[in-house]
Amino acid sequence: MIEIKHLKKYYDKTLALTIDSLAIENNHVLGLVGTNGSGKSTLLRLIAGVLTQEEGEIALDGISVKDHPECKKDLLYISDDPIDHVNTSIDSLFLFYSVFYGMTREKLNAYLDYFSIPHSGNLSKFSKGMRRRTYLAIALAVEPKILLLDEAFDGLDPTGKKAFILALSELIERNDMTVIVASHSIRELENLCDSYLMLQEGKVITYAPEGLNGEDFTKIGVAFKDSFDFTKLSSPKAILVSHIDKIGTLFFEGTKEEAEAYLAPFAPAVTEFTPLSAEEYFILKTEEHKHD
């Protein structure tokens, strides 16, 4: 179990991340989402012990990471761009990860095959996607108890993303694994994560233990017969996302029935109600937070 309490991390004097309390159970997949600079990587780096916090505590199974780095023995952290590629080969990566994490060559080769990566070669000659797949192969081959992945899908094509999600899901099912994955690809996270932590400007704006399903919101596509001033639709409960001439889209906080009641005075010609996707929910929350 990963526990975070009263965490505060500063870069120089700027508060980069603050989390009052967070507990991530074992065998759980947490998605970290947020805009650029929201603190996702900082949080992963703090848990991995790459950075140390100024205040608060991060504990793995009750042991402080800061005071007892040895508690990280079952933790693997794959950063967004882990190692300088100039002198890094598959063999040198294997050397490093096999010595420290007990990975076998057979297992690594199997995952390299799975991701269509050659068994040898220098990473400087690999494309960005190939490098990413190589590290993901390592992450899977190590089979750590706690896996921290920063920008897991960065540089991957749709096939690569799907393959990784599938392989990781299988691994999670087979082993007791806790995974924290930070990504901008919310659509991909939807297929992987049990819960989500949404960060913005170093603060938690939403913790969604049941997923980013946006149950409290309704997405409304609306069209009018004549030109319409869509700003009239905006309110604390309704956020106007986009509009062109007579057609617009808005997010409404409430059920479909409540949305219908809200729109009735404006007499729209057509209305279409759909549930929010995780990505839309993320945009909504980010916008909400900006307005706050």
Binding site: V50, P69, K73
Partner: peptide, 20 residues
């Protein structure tokens, strides 16, 4: 330099190891 602290990126990987 070669074996350990080749770059800042490598440092991140090393600092994540369970050794101070």
């Amino acid at each position: 330099v070669q074996a350990t602290f080749q770059s800042k990126k490598r440092c991140d990987t090393l600092l994540a190891l369970p050794i101070r």
